[in-house]
């Protein structure tokens, strides 16, 4: 058999964990920001837990990446080198030792990770201080939330765009991976907040129900993006691409794809939500539904990356 020409980066599952946590961080941050903008008082718990989760989920990111690269200082090369070369790519900008490459999603993503970490830290600090009885800095929180929100979206989506900018057959004609990863970030971010809320209890009023409604909506977007991804790849035509897609949806990745990413991650939680089970019954159901969404969110990223790297 022809081994084929292409090679794979063979990124380990560590990278999937980073992409997963980055998605949760971005999603939770955006949810907290929206809740804060609309009614910071009423959704106080969603805002606080959302910003805490965002900060806690993004913090391992640089560590995971550093472990993958092996040498601590190497991560810095993503952002700066002491002697940048002149011709390093389309529209590349270098300022002093720093460089930004808009067409390298990995480079842009490293900048987004840095920017988001700063804003996630500020937001978490602000809700922490307020919780400890300090004054709430309303305007500051809004500014941090909105600017950080853009970084948050970027952080959630860029891994999908990054995969799409490789020569791997499953990814090269895909186009929808960024949108999919963004939706997964939103659904898993919502699920993470809901999980904490339902475990801690104490949420007043209808905030949790509204959060679950949003999360279910994000799941629908996720399902649509996943379907469009499969559809786009399947109509791209070349034999190598067809083989890679078959590997994902029918081959050795078929079971985790259908069972993990689709059934556990999307269909069951949506069914629970629309059956109205979540609203009426104990927080245990909400917690279960959140767990399923989190498992499915990891599964969909993991299985797509694994199948794309293997074929």
């Amino acid at each position: 058999m022809e081994p084929g020409l292409l090679k794979s980066a063979d990124w380990p599952a560590l990278i999937d964990v980073y992409f997963f946590l980055g998605g949760i961080a971005g999603g939770a941050f955006v949810i907290a920001t929206i809740a804060n903008l609309l009614d910071g008082e009423r959704y106080r718990d969603v805002v606080r837990i959302g910003y805490y989760i965002a900060f806690l989920a993004v913090t391992p990111g640089p560590i995971l990446l550093t472990v993958d690269l092996g040498v601590p200082t190497r991560f810095l090369h993503m952002l700066m080198v002491s002697k940048p070369s002149l011709a390093i790519g389309m529209d590349a900008v270098t300022v002093g030792p720093f460089h930004l490459k808009p067409f390298s999603p990995m480079n842009a993503g490293a900048w987004a990770l840095l920017g988001f970490s700063l804003f996630a830290f500020l937001a978490a600090l602000d809700v922490f201080l307020e919780h400890r009885g300090g004054r709430s800095m309303r305007t500051l929180r809004v500014v941090v939330g909105v600017i950080g929100g853009f970084f948050a979206f970027f952080l959630a989506a860029y891994p999908g765009v990054l995969l799409g900018a490789t020569a791997r057959p499953l990814f090269v004609g895909a186009h929808w991976l960024g949108a999919l990863f963004l939706a997964v970030g939103a659904s898993t971010g919502g699920a993470a907040i809901a999980l904490v809320l339902s475990v801690l209890g104490g949420q007043r009023g209808d905030a949790l129900a509204r959060l679950m409604r949003f999360t279910a909506f994000a799941l629908i977007v996720q399902l649509a993006a996943l379907a469009l991804f499969v559809l786009t790849v399947s109509t791209t035509g070349s034999a190598g691409i067809a083989r890679a897609l078959a590997q994902l949806i029918a081959g050795s990745y078929g079971v985790p794809f259908w069972l993990g990413a689709v059934v556990i991650g999307i269909v069951v939680p949506l069914a629970l939500q629309f059956a109205g089970v979540v609203r009426k019954t104990a927080p245990a159901i909400t917690a279960l539904m959140s767990l399923l969404i989190l498992v499915g969110g990891f599964a969909v990223k993991y299985v797509i990356i694994a199948a794309g790297q293997a074929t």
Binding site: I31, A35, P102, H175, G178, A179, L180, F181, A186
Partner: peptide
């Protein structure tokens, strides 16, 4: 692919944000 993929990501970000505004 970067331009198209990014535009689709922005589109889905808008949809998700809108969903958030409606839900909350």
């Amino acid at each position: 692919n970067v331009v198209v993929d990014s535009l689709l990501s922005i589109g889905s970000a808008l949809v998700v944000a809108l969903g958030g505004l409606v839900a909350f």
